[in-house]
Amino acid sequence: MLDVRDLRKSYGRVAAVDGASFSVEPGQLVGLLGPNGAGKSTTVAMIAGLVTPDGGTVAIGGKPLSGDTDPQKRLIGLVPQDLALYEELPAAANLRLFGSLYGLTGRALEDAIGSALLLVGLAERAGDRVKTFSGGMKRRLNLAAGLLHDPQILLLDEPTVGVDPQSRNAIFENLEFLKARGKALLYTTHYMEEAERMADRIVVMDHGRVLADDTLAGLRERAGRDAGPGASLESLFLAMTGRSLRD
């Protein structure tokens, strides 16, 4: 569904992404892991069309993505790390705007808003302004805004940062539901336990390169080989990316 090939992006002399390649299939959740500055966010930004790659391709269903207005972008839903919501407006008004950007109108738009709010458990707060929401509610609404137009690919950039366990669990359940509906999910996170719980495959990046791309079982086997029997995903991650602090 989503195929990333030899993606490159540099800022001056610094290579933010240096030949990254991986794919995400329908019904699959791929965890994109890496320390700060590894190139995860830049990779997601290039897939979402926010940043123009210096080289390589992003293909959706086999067709390369090109340009701001490429209709293929309708197949992608972005859930940014920031709470990208208009706090002055009610939840429904936010979703009405974001749905309109993808060509949804009339009954279809209102139905999509209702379904999205129901999915994230905010149907009863549709008319309330976002600034009255808790952090967890905003995170769930942020997710709803990304899947409103029923995208086939969902890009989730650390969607659980700063939320309580209840809201995080609710988001996980939402993602399981979407996966079961055949959506392709790319999920960036710093939390190893999230990747272990949710991911069908894990891509580890550092210094703009893909260091590993395997199933959780495959990575555990590799961890056992490299770090001894019973080694965790986190110990493998640290073995691959080093223990030096990143800013």
């Binding site: 930004a45 926010l50 972008k73 992608i76 972005l78 709470l83 990208a84 950007l101 993808y102 805004a145």
Partner: peptide, 15 residues
């Protein structure tokens, strides 16, 4: 600053 521009730019809209 609030990340809203990312959401707007990810939609199939011209500059």
């Amino acid at each position: 600053e609030r990340g809203l521009w990312k959401r707007l730019r990810s939609a199939p809209l011209s500059r």
